[in-house]
Design a protein around this nucleic acid. Structure first.
Lengths: 334, 334
DNA sequence: ATGAAAGCGCTAACAT
DNA sequence: ATGTTAGCGCTTTCAT
């Protein structure tokens, strides 16, 4: 029989002729219920389609069997992580709740979301690119790719330094000597490490870094447009640009097109991240891939361990990997 | 001051020297609080970093300002919808909670999830590809791409029939005559419509359908592997395969590679959905695009309307569109 | 303007 | 084996 209002435990209890406590025991598989009663109550539960309210249950029991993944926004980066987390959650026995304000991640969003959900709705959380890296009292938390470097929180990220080296070495091996770096957000750890990788590879090859060819791009397509243009619109322009992420690499592609430069014939471009958009550009972007799915999966497994009181590593760093597509080639001859 | 336990309303009340009732009024912007008290309480809230527990709040108020999107699994299809929903949620003033068991969607998962969350945690839900299409008592619900055809639930989907026709006509226009169809899940409406489109286009071109070339693939890469292999590993293999979705098309690509067949030289492949992965395959997949982001965005807007008591259309069908990439070409000569 | 008290749906002692 | 009772953290009358 369908009712117009949600079926609650009291409804089940009344229908089965028992107390709510007994129903609760049945639902939670506690001892102290006769076979006969159990069968009857179970039958009523099925008939009525009863399912315990997560809110009410967790308010009382402080255990929900649900893990959270908190993101500022559902965009390509975070949803890749989500796919990774989703692919392993079943094997942990938990269910997965992804939460986003939809806004655009005001500073401290992670703390608000966590307070909202923790203690009542989720047993622990994976936080994606938190801006503030406090430890959170009483809630198991794993950070993915935090903006500031590792602190008290168990963290999963990828090897930004090695990635920066890889991108730069790739260009050097093609014969480039005059290489520019369109940087990311200078306040972010990942951007600093990618630049450091760039400098390290240049130094190792005995190549000078022209400081006028190292410009901040801000990780976004819009903020990268002007510096990308400046980089390419000069008589002594570089033969290659290593951009700190794919979005800014795309901006370099835009700038090249505007200036009538062909990629990779006139100038080579390497990005970072390997978001799907990077494969869809024209030409498809050579980029350093972060293993986003694997990072999501790893973080979720760590969280499950943490919630179960098992030991987890403080910092897990996954390898990055160069994906050579079509924006890199040897430099033009003089 | 950081505490070791979650700060709750009682903590705020004690610190500010008022009752929890007053704090509640401040938090919810109710009238009946003096300017002075309001300022003091607000200050304490900020100092302590207090945020109301979603569970406790909604248990009492039955209004949460959170919309849910319920999916069987976080895979490319559902996460695209999620991106679409996420992109508009801010403009509706709601926050967004995505929920998944992680399992593989036992029958009736949507009812379980909905019971769990509705009434207490979310004000309404978008359900992605529900298997059972009941109306749900007392909860505003929008269905995306339901497995059974439209029923009592407001629904958003795309034109699967036209898409199936489009994919097949594309292959026919390239000169293919012997075309296979790797189907989806036979219990799903979308799969049936795509196959129907296939048959319709074949019939319109006066081409026979070899029934041994129509195999179910189950919409997943794993379940499609065997039938994809069977389709290609026969002396009279088809010159083209129309796969019911991108994941199974990717499985066809895998099978072709295993068998040493080149795509599209030896066999052409068309997918359906246009998930990001389809552009990343090698070679990039020709596919029928569903406007997934738009579907997600539309469904979320409809849900917001429904929750606000506004009228919503019963059935919104969005157009599909062929994206020709690199897995289709004329058939090999004999 | 403020606070006391009841209760949302559930679980966990503690009776019986 | 079953029921009674007391909350979980919050909102909401209803007093004051």
């Amino acid at each position: 029989m369908e009712q117009v209002t949600r079926v609650k435990m009291a409804d089940v209890a009344r229908t089965a002729g028992v107390s709510v406590a007994t129903v609760s025991k049945v639902v939670n598989g506690r001892y102290g219920v006769s076979q006969e009663t159990l069968a009857r109550v179970q039958q009523v539960i099925d008939d009525l389609g009863y399912e315990a309210s997560l809110g009410a249950r967790s308010l009382r029991s402080h255990r929900t069997n649900v893990l959270g993944i908190l993101v500022a926004e559902f965009e390509p980066f975070s949803t890749e992580l989500l796919k990774g987390a989703g692919s392993v959650v079943a094997s942990t026995g938990y269910e997965l709740l992804a939460y986003s304000g939809g806004g655009g991640g005001e500073v401290g969003w992670e703390r608000r979301y966590l307070s909202r959900l923790s203690g009542t709705l989720i047993d622990g959380a994976v936080i994606v690119t938190p801006t503030v890296l406090d430890t959170y009292p009483g809630v198991p938390v794993i950070a993915i790719d935090p903006h500031a470097g590792p602190s008290g929180l168990p963290t999963v990220d990828s090897d930004n330094l090695a990635g920066g080296v890889m991108a730069t070495e790739h260009l050097i091996s093609l014969g480039h000597r005059r290489i520019a770096h369109l940087g990311g957000r200078t306040d972010l750890d990942s951007a600093r490490l990618r630049e450091q990788g760039f400098r390290q590879a240049m130094a190792a090859a005995g190549l000078p870094v022209d400081e006028s060819l190292v410009l901040p791009g801000g990780y976004r397509r819009l903020t990268s447009a002007a510096p990308a243009h400046d980089l390419l619109d000069r008589p002594d322009r570089p033969t290659a640009v290593f951009a700190a992420n794919d979005l800014s690499a795309l901006a370099v592609l835009d700038a090249a097109r505007d200036l009538g430069l062909r990629v990779p014939h006139d100038v080579s471009v390497v990005g970072f991240d390997n978001v799907p958009e990077s494969a869809l550009s024209e030409p498809p972007l050579t980029t350093v891939a972060q293993p986003l799915r694997e990072m999501g999966a790893t973080a979720l497994r760590m969280l499950a361990d943490l919630v179960s009181g098992r030991e987890v590593p403080m910092h897990l760093r996954l390898a990055t990997e160069l994906h050579v597509r079509s924006t890199t080639a040897p430099p033009p001859p003089f």
